[in-house]
Design a binder for these strands. Structure first.
Length: 562
RNA sequence: GCGCCCGUAGCUUAGUCCGGAUAAAGCGUCUGGUUGCGGUCCAGGAGAUCGCAGGUUCAAAUCCUGCCGGGCGCACCA
């Protein structure tokens, strides 16, 4: 429907003013009194057409007034065109919203989404929430819209940190086999290593030497490494399950162990990799770029994350021929990925589909989080605290709770509140960790969405199910508002996908809940006369479906009863 | 030093890419609303020189320049 209106506007602009290269944007007016749809197109083309905005708007209005779906259209303010659609057109258009609740059939080249990136031998920290949840949501939205998605967890399972851990275990461990240590114990040893460096400055060198040995194929170290990887992966699984996070592959740093040599050879041969200080290998960039040189190989011949990232880019392009590669990382890594991209281009790779999707950093109010210092807030602690708070909340409401399974509900609310706190915010924003914020249960929060969903489902159930409304000739103000919000759903999904911004979807769902609750309080549903009753039940049913669909894409579950 | 990001009601944020109507919400605060389809809800009030100063424009939170404040990055960690 929107596209037919857009075409009508485009046609008249072309015939009247010869303007044929403008995209017509539709907005949802802030005020109900401004109609269902509005476009500032007349203001935008005013200069090009050398006519006043109002004059152009009049022309657009007269063209649009011939459209069947339009009840009323007028010029407003400085030159806006405001449109009121007919009730029949509005109700008919709900079909596209209903369709948007079902995942589309997948087709086309795959989209690789890389996110979470935990380090082996370390527990997930609260700060991993950002890349993990934004990545998962972005992947979910792509998948829902019919893209073939490869969800990729690229774990830090290689590198000098392994040398450090090996040194720490042999120096300060209690003699147990490597597989016997828990992740938390491994973290303690890792932290101890960094503390001891202050007393013994040979430790760093030892760690590097041990990693070099591992990389050269030492079988004992290899077995040690495998034990640690297995321990960490099994610990991660539980926490990912709670967050509704899952992956299609976890090909990690070690996977590229044997894929770096060809890259290094080719890069040297092509003259892209040059000798740097101390026998190292670097790539350099043009002066205009202002980027510092990129270290590809260390002076001692050992590889780096940059070496593996180049090999990984090559591998992904060759193996999957993806249309997009989205790597979700925090903003501190921006320079690294710019250098990576420039280096890949120098090596002749076509990386047009690559984007480093940046998320903000999470900080505590006072100290910055650093695994090396051990002052990390562990994610499992955050989650269990959230569930505990939800349990208290449920107990407070006692008799009003209708859920059959309060424990499951506490999980949904607690984990949901934390996840919503992350995913409802612009991903580029830094987040200062604050318990009150993460355990918010009122207002713009996961439980608000969950409550509204349960309420709507309950109404539909009491109505005996929803049916297609017939012969709607008029709409109340609240019905119209809810309806036009519901109609935004498919466009919101596309916008969230295109910009890799899940919070656009979260904001929409919140607004939908507000509009539904306003409607619910203003109009009787079950006691209304036909045909209003069937329309209202239908709107209620669709609202519930949209909330459930959208929430799921954001990793949130919503209960039918609570 | 060079580069990047951020600065919007008391607090937390949306809006900035692509300039347009009276800057939009949540929390907090004040006043109201349930013999009712689920009150974890709803209606309303107060609360903002959009960090500061210039510039471009018919029109600037949005674009440009400078400054201030906060954060981050800048080769042998990832």
């Amino acid at each position: 429907m929107f596209s037919s209106l857009s075409n009508a506007v485009k046609n008249v602009l072309e015939t009247e003013y010869g303007i044929d290269d403008i995209a017509v944007s539709w907005e949802r007016p802030q005020e109900v009194s401004h109609g269902d749809l509005a476009t500032p197109i007349a203001l935008q083309v005013s200069k090009k057409a050398s006519k006043s905005p109002k004059e152009i708007a009049e022309v657009v209005v007269s063209a649009l007034s011939k459209e069947d779906s339009i009840e009323r259209v007028e010029v407003a303010g400085p030159g806006y065109v405001n449109i009121w659609l007919t009730p029949a057109a509005l109700v008919a258009a709900l079909g596209s919203t209903r369709q948007a609740c079902t995942a589309k059939v997948k087709s086309g080249a795959p989209v690789i989404v890389e996110y979470s990136q935990p380090n082996i031998a370390k527990p997930l920290g609260a700060h991993h929430l950002l890349t993990t949840l934004f990545g998962q949501s972005i992947a979910n939205i792509y998948e829902h819209l019919g893209y073939e998605v490869i969800k990729w967890n690229y774990m830090g399972d290689w590198g000098t940190q392994f040398g450090k851990l090996s040194v720490a275990v042999s120096k300060w461990g209690d003699g147990r086999a490597a597989s016997e240590y828990t992740v938390d114990e491994l973290l303690e040893l890792y932290v101890k290593f960094h503390n001891e460096v202050e007393n013994d400055d040979t430790l760093e060198g030892q760690a590097r030497a041990v990693f070099k040995k591992l990389e050269d194929g030492d079988t004992e170290l290899r077995a040690f490494w495998e034990d640690i990887v297995a321990t960490t992966k099994s610990a991660l699984t539980g926490i990912y399950d709670q967050l509704h996070v899952s992956f299609d592959t976890d090909k990690s740093e070690s996977f590229y162990e044997d894929k770096m040599e060809p890259i290094l050879k080719a890069g040297i041969k092509a003259g892209v990799f040059k000798e740097g200080e101390g026998g190292s290998l670097i790539s350099e960039f043009s002066e205009e770029s202002t980027m510092p040189p990129y270290l590809i190989r260390k002076g001692d011949g050992a590889t780096l994350y940059s070496t593996r990232d180049i090999a990984q880019m090559r591998y992904r392009l060759d193996e999957y021929k993806p249309q997009e590669i989205l790597i979700v990382t925090d903003i501190a890594q921006k320079l690294h990925f710019e250098q990576l991209a420039a280096t890949c281009v120098q090596l002749g790779m076509d990386i047009t589909g690559f984007e480093n999707v940046l998320v903000g950093r999470m900080r505590y109010a006072d100290k910055s989080m650093s695994t090396r210092k051990g002052n990390v807030l562990k994610l499992d602690e955050v989650l269990s605290e959230a569930v505990k708070k939800a349990e208290e909340k449920i107990a407070e409401h006692g008799d009003q709770i209708q859920s059959d399974n309060p424990q499951e509900l506490a999980q949904m609310m607690g984990i949901g509140a934390v996840a919503y706190g992350v995913v409802s915010q612009n991903r580029k924003q830094d987040i200062v960790f604050d318990w009150d914020k993460f355990l918010s249960f009122e207002g713009n929060s996961a439980p608000y969405l969950q409550y509204t969903h349960a309420r709507a489902r309950s109404v539909v159930e009491k109505a005996g199910g929803a049916t297609q409304p017939q012969k709607i000739s008029q709409l109340s103000e609240k019905e119209r508002l809810l309806l036009s919000t519901l109609l935004q759903f498919d466009r919101v999904l596309e916008e969230a996908r295109k910009n890799h911004m899940p919070h656009i979807l979260a904001n929409f769902l919140f607004e939908l809940c507000q509009d539904y609750n306003t409607f619910y309080n203003a109009e009787p549903i079950l006691k209304a006369e036909e045909p209003a009753r069937s329309l209202r039940v239908h709107l209620t049913d669709l609202t519930a479906d949209v909330i459930k669909t959208g929430a799921k894409l954001l990793t949130l579950s919503v209960p039918d009863r609570m």
